[in-house]
Design a protein around this nucleic acid. Structure first.
Length: 616
RNA sequence: GCGUCUGUAGCUCAGUGGAUAGAGCAAUGGCCUCCGGAGCCAUGUGCGGAGGUUCGAUUCCUCUCAGACGCACCA
């Protein structure tokens, strides 16, 4: 289905053209003065100069055309409805519009018949690689990984919903210095392992010589040691180099580290309801690196500098010369940029994406600028391929500083999720308590009874919504304050509030069905009340919002929309007693209307990465 | 030093080249014989500052102040 703004705009274009003005002045936008109109066109003022006329005269001519008895709907289907109920030219040159109620109702009826509620699929199956997650092997996920996972998952879902072939890749950190650090630390702890015997010729054990718990202790320990102990660091660097060179015993250890760690990471991302199509890592770029380095040199792009191999990426238009991109360390080891470029080579070979979207901390912006330029300069990625980088801000505590545990440490993601679930669970218990103490405690049939197990499960689902909505409702690029109490609140602009709205609609629909109601494929009728009309207008924005949000890679726009829609529903719910409505046709229309609201909300939170429970 | 990003209500955040800049939370005062009150209504404060472009700027440009971050062998 066409977007409602496009339908209105094309009607206006017709009018502008008919009056002798360029179509580009006809663009219609949502009104910012709902008291005056629903939509507005400001083109007359912009056109005034070009045509040397007073804006109000231009607006007047256009309105004259529209009201000249030829106001028709998008039509062509024989049952076209008049589009506007109001067309006013207002000083200094605004054209104020309101939709005809039948046109609006028709639009919604169209939406509910369509596959994706009237959403078109501009993606057309184009392949897009989304690189997010960025977990490091052998290190537990912590709050620093949250944003990449949550934002990336949402972007991937948005794109998929719009018909793109989205490929999400976790791109593990599994090939850099941290692996050398772990290997060296392991050697110090368990020097007798066969991997550290120089002339060992036998098979390597199938069982990992450590648990995930040990592994998680090894890395921070080794990392701290390398900062104090220079010789330890050198040994770790050597181990890294040997691993990258394919030294069999280290590769064997590395495989153990990978297996143990990956199982744990999959579990944790699963708890976040974050999914990846590919579990590739930096190591997968390994095979491409020798060719990459020699190719960069053959093309004359790479040069030696202070022992390292670098590629200049500065361009004339740069305000300041950007530092070159280091592709090989002076000790010969690969680093961040090298593996990222190697990864591109693999992705081009296997998937030929039309677009890349990288989601990483905004502090990495320079790095991405560098590798994007190298990739384009060397022709590894076609010129026309879009390469986007979303740099997200820091998650801060209430003090405005990066989020920490009480003792100042880095909080594990598991802990954060557990805290949120606990807070939500407490709220659920609170509500149950209030219910039981209430004057009419019997209240059975409300469907509010919940077993302990259900309550825990529900708390988990609501907690995830609280967490993700709290994060996604902020612009990605900005730092934001993580406030557990606020995010888990069941009122206000929060994830739980959105879920509550969906649950409440479900409850009404359930009651309606249980009392023998069946709306069948009844049509939504033109609105009678103002809240009803506002709700309907809000619904029409759906496809526009989805497209814009993806075009701008801005999940927060979807948050904003679902919140506004939920609020519009609240207004409608307040003014209209759906189940008490005696006019059967109107009641059916309302049932269809709120069903559509539920479906739109469900689709919206679906791309945000969470879902509503049955009850809460 | 150079560069990037960010400054909007007491707090947390949206927003737009257009007509009166919005939400939530907090505060105050109201509203329930209500399908789930986890709601609704009312009241009050704000675009860091200065110039410029424009018929019109909170939005675009320049300067300035403040904060965060980045500037070659970490990722």
């Amino acid at each position: 289905m066409k977007k409602i703004l496009d339908l209105i705009s094309s009607r206006m274009e017709e009018a502008f053209l008919a009056c002798g003005y360029e179509a580009r002045y006809a663009r219609v936008v949502l009104s910012n003065r709902p008291d005056l109109c629903e939509y507005q066109c400001n083109g007359a003022m912009a056109a005034a100069k070009a045509y040397k006329k007073k804006p109000i005269d231009i607006a007047g001519e256009v309105v004259e055309y529209l009201t000249g008895g030829r106001d028709a709907g998008a039509g062509g289907d024989g049952k076209s409805t008049v589009m506007f109920s109001q067309t006013d030219a207002v000083m200094p040159g605004f054209i104020n519009l309101r939709l005809n109620g039948s046109f609006l109702a028709d639009y919604l009826n169209g939406m509910q018949k369509e596959q994706k509620l009237g959403l078109e699929e501009p993606g057309c199956g184009e392949t897009v690689i989304v690189d997010y997650g960025g977990a490091n092997v052998a290190k537990p996920l912590h709050v620093g990984h949250l944003r990449s996972a949550v934002i990336g998952e949402s972007i991937r879902r948005m794109g998929a919903y719009l018909g793109y072939h989205m490929i999400g890749d976790v791109h593990l950190g599994d090939w850099g210095l941290q692996m050398g650090l772990i290997i060296e630390e392991l050697r110090e702890r368990k020097p007798d392992l066969v991997y550290f015997k120089e002339h060992y010729e036998g098979e390597y054990p199938a069982k990992a010589p450590f648990t995930i718990g040990e592994l998680e202790d090894i890395y921070p320990c080794a990392s701290a040691k390398s900062k104090k102990d220079e010789s330890f660091k050198e040994r770790a660097q050597r181990a890294t180099l040997r691993l990258q060179g394919g030294y069999a015993p280290y590769v064997a250890v590395w495989k153990h580290i990978m297996a143990v760690s990956l199982a744990d990471l999959k579990k944790n991302y699963g708890n976040l309801d974050v999914h990846f199509d590919l579990w590739k890592g930096e190591s997968d770029a390994g095979p491409y690196i020798p060719w990459l380095l020699s190719d960069l040199q053959e093309k004359g792009l790479a040069r030696e500098s202070e022992g390292a191999l670098v590629v200049d990426i500065a361009e004339e238009s740069d305000p300041k010369e950007l530092p070159p991109c280091i592709v090989q360390k002076s000790d010969g080891a690969a680093l961040y940029a090298t593996t990222d470029l190697g990864t591109m080579l693999e992705r081009e070979k296997l998937y030929q994406p039309k677009r890349y979207i990288y989601i990483a901390d905004k502090r990495q912006e320079l790095h991405y600028t560098q590798i994007f330029r190298v990739a384009k300069k060397a022709g590894y990625v076609p010129k026309e391929t879009r390469m986007d980088y979303i740099g997200f801000g820091t998650m801060n505590g209430k003090d405005g500083k990066p989020f920490k545990t009480r003792d100042g440490g880095v909080m594990r993601l598991e802990q954060l999720i557990a805290d949120i679930e606990e807070a939500v669970y407490a709220r659920i218990q609170e509500n149950r308590g209030v219910l039981e103490e209430g004057p009419e405690a019997e209240g059975s049939g409300t469907g509010m009874e919940m077993t302990e197990e259900e309550a825990r499960k529900t708390a988990k689902r609501i907690g995830l919504a609280a967490l993700k909505y709290g994060d996604l409702s902020n612009q990605a690029a900005k730092d934001y304050v993580f406030d557990l109490d606020r995010f888990t609140s069941f009122t206000g602009n929060t994830g739980p509030y959105i879920l509550y709205t969906v649950v409440r609609i479900q409850s009404i629909l359930r009651n309606y069905q249980e009392s023998g109601g069946n709306a069948g494929d009844a049509g939504i009728l033109p609105a009678e009340g103002s809240a009803e009309r506002e709700l309907m207008l809000e619904l029409t924005r759906y496809n526009e919002v989805m497209e814009t949000a993806f075009a701008e890679l801005a999940p927060h726009k979807i948050c904003q929309y679902v919140y506004e829609l939920a609020n519009a529903f609240s207004g409608f719910y307040r003014d209209n007693k759906i189940l008490a409505q005696e006019d059967a046709a109107r009641q059916k229309g309302w049932i269809r209307l709120i069903t559509l609201v539920r479906d739109v909300l469900t689709a919206g939170i679906g791309v945000l990465g969470f879902e509503a429970p049955e009850r809460m």
